[in-house]
Design a protein around this nucleic acid. Structure first.
Lengths: 187, 187
DNA sequence: TCCGTGATGTCATTGAGTGACATGATTGAC
DNA sequence: GTCAATCATGTCACTCAATGACATCACGGA
């Protein structure tokens, strides 16, 4: 056994989410999170840039996987088809994290500071997707539009998935949301 | 003459923008802003909720004016026409503030924390517009879509306006951007 | 003239975030 | 098998954002 318990970052994530849910984000101190995780506050800031970032550690992985999925789509695929494929691919990342996602989303929805952070993560995702589309030869304006639309679909589908009482698969909700979008723009 | 110089909030806004531009947002302290404005740091926080908000004092007025302009549009006007009218109306608010807007936008673009705040202001604006459209009898889904699109046009046009070297009117740039949008969705 | 109001100052405090340095287990070289 | 480098963490000290409590004092109205 090591000198310390392993996976300090994971324990900090869990402790932070639990405390944010119990007491609210503002009334939770970093010292409290660190205590619960069995480390010091200084260690918290070695793993996470600030008090908000602890809930967004996965967003970089999401972004990278979506870019990867985009690159894996056939070069001939139209932009929105490639985006749709990427969305369905990353949906699998959340398969076994529905409960965590639900708690996390509730906390974010209740906290303006956290919603700010989420917005910029989504904006960053959209920018990255637009860039990847441009590398596939899509014109910049179209690429940005498709990327923004794709992120909107992600958000709406994710919200539905964590809100609905039933046990649907995120991928299925994504498909349904994409169908809604098609209906909006054609009908 | 009063006990203190008048318009402390205005002086604080000016001082903050100047210092953010000179030294960057992070290396600027509230005490420094307050010093330059001739007040104490405590007074800064009486006028602005936090260090970021000092650059976004006008956003509530923008929102209110856009809602007002929406309400003033003929009840028969289609959603996007009403949105367009509101955009052209509020464009006038910026007529004599182009230099200020330019400096402000440069600072925001250079500072992630400030971009977060701007994103949530834009999201709030979109939500308010969607609500106003619904009160005009527009279906919720359509209202949200139109509102988001309208905010996107505002952002793109504003960015063009502060970036372009020429001295165009914001309203003109808005009109051109709306035309681009029409071309995107029909052509 | 006097009193209430409102904007500001002053003081004290909490908590976020950072820099510098110490510690000690783990790992790999020799 | 020892030693040195490494790496995650702890400890300490500090700056700065943000807030609460209370004091001050010009101004306008009664």
């Amino acid at each position: 056994m090591g000198r310390w318990e392993p996976d300090a970052a994971g324990r900090l994530r869990e402790a932070a989410l639990a405390l944010y849910a119990e007491q609210g984000f503002e009334r939770t101190t970093v010292a409290g999170i660190a205590d619960r995780a069995g480390v010091t506050a200084r260690t918290f800031f070695r793993h996470f840039a600030d008090k908000r970032e602890v809930l967004f550690a996965g967003s970089q992985e999401l972004e990278q996987r979506m870019i990867g999925a985009l690159a894996a789509a056939p070069p001939s695929a139209p932009p929105m088809d490639a985006i749709a494929a990427a969305l369905l691919t990353v949906a699998g990342l959340f398969a076994d994290r529905r409960d965590y996602s639900r708690r996390r989303q509730a906390v974010i929805a209740a906290t303006p500071e956290l919603r700010e952070r989420e917005l910029i993560k989504m904006a960053s995702l959209a920018t990255a997707l637009a860039g990847a589309l441009q590398q596939r030869g899509v014109a910049p304006a179209v690429a940005s539009l498709a990327a923004e639309t794709g992120v909107a679909v992600f958000r709406v589908a994710f919200e539905r998935w964590v809100t609905e009482p039933e046990d649907a698969q995120l991928a299925e909700v994504m498909r349904a949301t994409l169908a809604d979008l098609a209906g909006l723009t054609t009908g």
